[in-house]
Design a protein around this nucleic acid. Structure first.
Lengths: 200, 200
DNA sequence: GTCTATATTCTGATAGAC
DNA sequence: GTCTATCAGAATATAGAC
């Protein structure tokens, strides 16, 4: 039997998430009403509740899905010699985050709008990613490939520096994404190199 | 003649700003109502409008005052040889921002809640501060004190790295603020030094 | 699966008494 | 300078028709 007219289960769910992602990033979670999300999708506000239990869960799942995808995508960067792994991580972080401006923005800016339980889960995922970089630095120091006074501080500094690219880089500017990846890798390389020297 | 009972003009204004600063930082501008601010101060919502024209202006002035204070406080860091100026800037940025967690948070997170005119003014002030660091790097490169491929990129990277301290550093942790200032200066020093070498 | 209608609470801002 | 009362509208979420 044909589907009831006006029924679009397979596409409405993803469209709600896509609209919420963009609107939350542009205006903020608290400033975006369920009615505005519904209008963007082309349904009435009540229909949203066929797909999401409430607004809070919608926010939480957007953040969780982003971080889970990040953790899966970073895996290929963890093979090879220490310096190659770090370079791969730097280039990956910049490219992955540039391709997901809205999700990155939300994952950083809307933490305070999560319930305590949801906040704990998101912070756990973020901590795993930060720990990943710290482990890379620890192994490089152990190998003698890197010289870093405090790998926890260095990993936080590097992640902040790389994520900061999203605040100013636009693909139509004077630099390509490849230019930016190259320059950031040079800066990170200098930061962690033994004796402050970088071999050519 | 004695002041009307219940009248506290001199202290209510600053208390409104202090309460708004803290609440906006904790919950976000859009999530904080005028009634909640008023309750925090200990007055009724209507009384707030003796001190501020509207909620938007309250947010704008908090951000503007923070950035104006930042621009004034950074001035003493701009004297001396290139390397000393950069070290002073690094230490200053970390200390100044650590002492103003709420204002820094708001100045970064609530930009999207400003009207276009107010946004332009705030972005102008932030741009002045970023340009200040870039000028320092330019002068150091010109002197031969620094080797930096792109001073604009390097200044954005350094500011993001330094501001990121606010996301994880707490004074009761394993490191003192002085420890952190020292380690970040070492990392920045390595990043900008000629030939990637750092003299002892 | 989507609609309309609704319950309940809250919102920013103003008017006028004191 | 602060209060109370109020306006006009928006918020999240639910109920029940189709």
């Amino acid at each position: 039997m044909a589907r009831t007219q006006g029924s679009h289960a397979e596409i409405t769910g993803p469209r709600i998430r896509a609209a919420a992602l963009r609107l939350f990033a542009q205006q903020g979670y608290a400033a975006v009403s369920m009615r505005v999300i519904a209008r963007e999708v082309g349904v009435q506000a009540g229909a949203l509740y066929n797909y999401i239990p409430d607004k809070q869960t919608l926010l939480f799942e957007l953040m969780r899905d982003h971080l889970v995808e990040l953790m899966e995508a970073v895996r290929p960067c963890l093979d090879g010699p220490a310096e190659a792994r770090l370079e791969a991580f730097v280039r990956f972080h910049i490219a992955f985050h540039h391709a997901r401006l809205d999700a990155v923005f939300i994952a950083y800016m809307e933490l305070r709008n999560l319930t305590p339980d949801n906040f704990a889960e998101i912070e756990g995922l973020r901590g795993q990613y930060e720990r990943l970089l710290q482990d890379q630095l620890d192994m490089g120091v152990h190998d003698g490939a890197f010289a870093v006074a405090d790998t926890r501080i260095a990993s936080m500094a590097i992640i902040a520096m790389l994520t900061g690219v999203n605040t100013w880089f636009r693909a139509d500017g004077r630099l390509s994404l490849g230019d930016v990846q190259e320059m950031y890798w040079q800066m990170v390389h200098r930061m962690v190199s033994v004796g402050g020297t970088v071999s050519p």
